[in-house]
Amino acid sequence: MFALMSNFVFVPALTYGSQLALGALGITLVFGVLRFANFAHGDLMAFGTMGVVLITYWLQAHGIGIDPLPTALLALPFGIALAVGASLLIDRTVYRFYRKRRAAPVILVVASVGVMYVLNGLTRFVIGAEDQRFFDGARFLISAGDFKDLTGLDEGVTIKLTQALTVVVAVLMVAALFWFLQKTRTGKAMRAYSDNEDLALLSGISPDRVVAVTWIIAAVLATVAGTLYGLDKSFKPFVYFQLILPMFAAAIVGGIGQPIGAIIGAYVVAFSEVMLTYAYKRALMYIGPEGWGPEGLMQILSTEYKFAISFLILVFVLLVRPTGIFRGKVI
């Protein structure tokens, strides 16, 4: 029973949640500091990951690797550099103009839609729309068979290397981010700026610096999230665009502008997607008496509506507690 649930619910949801969390963190930071919902975040992820994929191919072709870990980890810094460069360039050419004019947030949102289209096109232009697989290295940490042998249980638990990697890297990234925000001077400046822009300016914080640092962090998070996601599944530009929807939901559910909220929100979204659509038949069979089993599949909501769930939660949260779980920005 426990093994069953952890295999099909806990491990996948934790992995997916971690991938979403890194993305949602980027969205929420941009929102906190620059005060707009960045629709281009998914495509920034794709753009950065594209860099990682291309470098990975190059490394693989030259036989450079760090077996059993995937080569992509070596290529990651290059992808990050690409994404950072791109987002700084975009900020310089697009967003700064509106920021200086103190344009309404909606204008920035629309501008981000424009950026989304451009990045979307550029990524496919360079790498094409095809599916790319760049994973190498070991596949499993524990496979279902090993687990059964090890514990003597009926149900297996598998943990893939990429899953473990995702969670570990996500935890490291989040820890580093929080350390940065809480302990360093620049991090504090960012929080102050996010909290009260005018006051922060008065106390001598350079807005350009804060904004630049925000973009750098957002790009790093986006590339790491995109790469982890691509390693775990595969890289396809179209999917990355689709990912912004659950990421937005996660950011708002957690309380937008609140880094900790984005993380919690991401897990809420991931776990409810899996748990609400899970068929509890087999799980109930383990709890219930011997030989007893429910008639139906005991599914709360059919999987067709999986993707609607994040939005149902979103709508629910907006109705009941519009600021999200952790009080986010004022609405």
């Binding site: 619910v9 996948p12 689709q242 799980a283």
Partner: peptide, 20 residues
């Protein structure tokens, strides 16, 4: 069980399928 192409994650679908 249907699955949507081009979406992020299919663990929920597989979990449901496996539960049968």
């Amino acid at each position: 069980v249907p699955h949507e192409d081009g979406k992020g994650d299919y663990s929920a679908e597989v979990a449901t399928l496996a539960a049968t």
